[in-house]
Computed example of a mutant assay.
Amino acid sequence: MRYKGASVYDDNEFFKDYLKRRNRKESPNNIIEKPVLMELIGDVKEEKVLDLGCGDAIFGLELIKQGCDFYEGVEGSLNMVEKAISTLKNSNSKINHCSIETWNFPDEEYDKVVSRLAIHYIEELRPVFKQVYESLKINGQFIFSVQHPILTASVKSANNSSLRTDWIVDDYFHTGKRVEPWIDKEVIKYHRTIEEYFLLLKSAGFKIDEIRECQPRAENFQNNEEYIRRMRIPLFLLFSCTK
């Protein structure tokens, strides 16, 4: 079975295994992607933040602790929604059980829209970017991360379950659907070039302020060999944009 969007998280066994991997301290999401993401997000005090593909909302809880006035998440998985509601209980927040593509974005509502590693699951990105743009207040920011296009271009490396030391880069300019093995399941992602992401953002009206590839930082690694390995290829691509 091939899973599209957030549906894979409603497989209970996968959901349990994913949370165990995702929330471990040494996860690349935590030690490589997150430090750069937080730099780009900056101060959230007294701001209203929308999180697309919010997952278990642990990240949302962190934003609330940093002074975010109101946090709203959109999440397609019921398992994740239930976990997110539990995470954020008694906080000024709201979680919507809906896919990103079908959610009804309000106009000029948010100071920031963020998304962590969810955008590459969306097939038709142009209308989503346009709706994000309309949902932001004037000078509002859109900050998001995706799996780096060097990795989404070819799934041949992903078929190797061992600890990789080499990666295959192929079919880079053949954009579109990819089926990737992940925690013993097959998930559907959509490959885009860096240029395509850039042009889609521009066509939606955004000013692109920064593009980051999250070079690993030695101080975030307990294992120097792992740091050296992660320096070989980018895992993440981040954009910071302004309305």
Rank of each mutant, 00 (worst) to 15 (best):
C68V: 03
V169P: 10
C241Y: 02
A158D: 10
Q66D: 13
I211G: 03
P28Y: 08
T242M: 07
S115C: 04
K89W: 00
R229Q: 05
W182T: 03
F142K: 07
G67N: 03
N90M: 15
T102V: 12
T175I: 14
E108Y: 03
I58N: 11
I150M: 14
F221H: 01
G55R: 00
V113W: 04
K177S: 09
S145N: 06
K20V: 10
E72G: 03
E210C: 06
S135P: 02
I58T: 15
A84D: 03
I95V: 13
W182H: 13
I168Y: 09
E39P: 02
L238P: 05
I194L: 15
G76F: 04
N139K: 10
T102I: 08
Y110N: 03
E180H: 00
Y18M: 07
V146E: 05
Y9P: 02
Q141H: 07
I233N: 11
D209E: 14
I64L: 15
V114T: 04
V74Y: 11
N224H: 13
E46H: 12
D111N: 15
K65V: 01
H120G: 07
L235G: 14
D170H: 09
R229L: 15
H191I: 10
N160H: 08
L52S: 04
L40F: 10
K20L: 13
E186F: 11
K4E: 14
L235S: 13
S27G: 02
L61S: 05
V8L: 11
P35V: 05
E75N: 04
L63Q: 08
E213Y: 08
E33N: 11
D170F: 09
Y110W: 10
R21E: 14
R126A: 14
Q141E: 12
I150L: 15
K25G: 00
T193G: 06
E13V: 13
T102P: 00
L50T: 05
S91F: 02
Y9A: 00
R164L: 13
C214T: 06
S154D: 11
E62T: 07
T165C: 03
D171A: 11
E47K: 14
K48W: 02
I122H: 02
F236Y: 12
V114L: 07
L125C: 10
L88F: 04
K34S: 08
Q147Y: 00
S161Y: 05
K202G: 01
K189S: 12
V187Q: 13
K16R: 11
L200Y: 10
P234C: 08
D43K: 08
V8H: 04
I168T: 12
N223A: 02
H97E: 08
A84F: 02
E13K: 13
L37R: 06
I58G: 11
E134D: 12
E82F: 11
A158I: 01
N96Y: 05
N96G: 00
D184P: 00
S7H: 09
C98T: 10
T165M: 05
F105R: 04
K65R: 15
F14H: 03
N96K: 11
N92G: 08
V8R: 05
V169I: 15
F15Q: 03
K202I: 09
E226L: 14
D171W: 01
K177V: 12
N90I: 05
Q131F: 04
F221V: 05
N96F: 06
G5Y: 07
I41K: 02
Q222P: 00
S145R: 08
V44H: 02
